[in-house]
Design a binder for these strands. Sequence first.
DNA 1: AAATCGTGGAG
DNA 2: TCTCCAAGATT
Length: 337
Amino acid sequence: MRQNQFVNQVLAWQANHGRHDLPWQQPATPYRVLVSEIMLQQTQVTTVIPYFERWMSSFPTLQSLAAATEDQVMAHWQGLGYYSRARNLLKAARHLIEHSAGEFPDDLKELQEIPGVGRYTAGAIRSFAFDQYGPIVDGNVRRLFCRLFGIEGVPGTSVVDKELWRLAEELTPKEHNRRFAQGLLDLGATLCTPRNPNCTSCPLQADCVAFREQRQNELPHKKATKTIPRREAHFVLHLQADKPVRIRLLKRPPSGIWASLWCLPELDEAPTQGELVTEFTHTFSHFKMHGQVWLTQDSTLCLNEDSATQYVALEQLADFGLPAPFRALLPSLMQEI
DNA sequence: AAATCGTGGAG
DNA sequence: TCTCCAAGATT
């Protein structure tokens, strides 16, 4: 399949059937594109939209973001997951202001020097913000290419990824890059879906290896699933007696799970004195947490120099970035007691 | 190269 | 309930 033909089919389909009303498409300024692309990493569009709106309302410009505190940023990101993205976005704003007076580079290599911006995101910024040549390989493109060209290996391995990027660089046109990149993503998201793709409506059907061989559901090949381990976790619920009731929160360290979020103090083992108030299970990508929450009078648990601690009332809770299970748990817990 | 890093949508 | 996986980056 010739490059020209491929590009034209993607562009023509995009014009009629693609998505044109996503919040970050109007207007597609470099800052808005950066924020949306970071939020969209491993995260579905419908999940991102309300976060994007809230973010833009609070941090409308790169300058306003650079002036924000880490806690403000984390509070806006709470519930979205992969929290290093939030810290990197703050670093990115300060990086751009320091290195180029707030101006975005339009060069692929320089874009990848921005914290949190890798090869995909650099290409996306080039395409969406500058309408320039910017190859992209994300989950959508990976699936589309593996089927269209009948790529047999498992994506994620270096051989297959190298081939996917080679194809992306080769097939990406020199003009109409915004529409082309959007078309690729829209094709993957709406037609060339993981299960039961809508090949009948696909403009590339005639050239698709997977369709010809009726292997749409086999490609791309999936990597072997591994069972995730289960970890025990213990959390301290320490209340300040006076009204209004306040609970002690501890800021988690800058690395590891839930980095930089505020959380109930975590212990290695169950406290010797304490009442089990509630427990929960929470599944991450790579382990399952069984958490137990212990009510205690001991205010000295988990006290150390490097982590900030604060007593927080129910009304202030929204200002703190909390892990998802505690965002669900704490309000009712504080009202009952 | 393989692990780590979250949460929720959708079947 | 279980599984797959989403506009990936970083170490």
